[in-house]
Design a protein around this nucleic acid. Structure first.
Length: 251
DNA sequence: CGAATTTGACCTAG
DNA sequence: CTAGGTCAAATTCG
């Protein structure tokens, strides 16, 4: 009886981690597909670009949700989910049933996790269809790389979306990390600016609004300085086509 | 010269 | 008290 239970949970765990790997691969591919498509769309039709951002966000959100569910299943069975803990999560996931946070409006405070929308791992952390402005950088305990804090550049439009980018630590002493560096991007809040952008985009230089120039990459700090040329499709395809390059599972 | 980034100080949750 | 998130003055960039 116990054996049956054990083998069942093992099946769940193993299947779960495989599925998780596939889902994350899928998520990463979608992210990168977005990075390819959005710049092109911005040139051609910014309304479509805006819609595409929505759609991509939706797809990524769905994948994240599934990963999260999967994670909770595997957590029940074994530990591996803990490995994912700080990598992939969403607002409902992560088992963060902490006490409700009492807040004083308008004051600086630690971010409320309930605001977290989703996180993902990508090698193109800046190309997500939004214009971000860096507002801080912090060395995080036990991390090899500083975490950088961005908020939507359209704060004047009451957009409160923020994100953090943390370059993933490199365990061990492998080199060649620069080309395959991954970043953990965590998004908080929602873009309330998008409607405005859509409405006004015809009057605004698209290079200001969406991905378009190196500037869109916004605050590029210790990350590679992405230029438009750097995001050239062929090089991204190279990345896709190289199975050994970067698609190893985080855990 | 205006916009964006850097960076140290400040604030708060735990 | 510590760690993480934000502010804001100073600096850099286009």
């Amino acid at each position: 009886m116990d054996n049956k239970m054990t083998s069942n949970s093992m099946t769940v765990v193993h299947g779960g981690s495989e599925m998780d790997a596939l889902l994350r691969r899928q998520q990463e591919l979608v992210v990168q597909l977005r990075a390819i498509i959005l710049p092109a769309l911005c040139d051609a039709d910014s309304r479509s670009a805006d819609l595409a951002v929505d759609l991509f966000d939706g797809v990524i959100g769905c994948i994240t949700g599934v990963i999260s569910k999967l994670q909770s299943i595997t957590t029940a069975g074994c530990e591996p989910a803990a490995i994912l803990g700080d990598v992939i999560s969403n607002g409902a996931g992560e088992g963060q049933e902490k006490k409700p946070v009492i807040r004083n409006a308008g004051q600086k405070r630690r971010r409320n996790n309930e605001k977290r929308s989703r996180s993902l791992v990508t090698i193109v952390p800046h190309y997500d269809g939004h214009h971000w402005r860096k507002y801080g950088q912090k060395n995080i305990n036990g991390r090899q790389h500083a975490r950088t804090y961005y908020r939507c550049a359209y704060t004047k439009r009451n957009c409160s979306a923020t994100k953090t980018i943390q370059r993933q630590d490199h365990n061990g002493s492998l080199n060649c990390e620069d080309e395959t560096a991954k970043y953990i991007v965590v998004y908080y809040g929602h873009h309330s600016c998008r409607a405005d952008i859509t409405r006004n985009v015809a009057n605004i230089d698209p290079s200001v609004d969406l991905i378009q120039s190196g500037k869109m990459a916004g605050a590029v700090t210790d990350f590679e300085k992405f230029d438009q040329q750097d995001l050239d499709v062929s090089s991204l395809i190279e990345v896709f086509d190289n199975p050994e390059l970067n698609w190893d599972i985080i855990c």
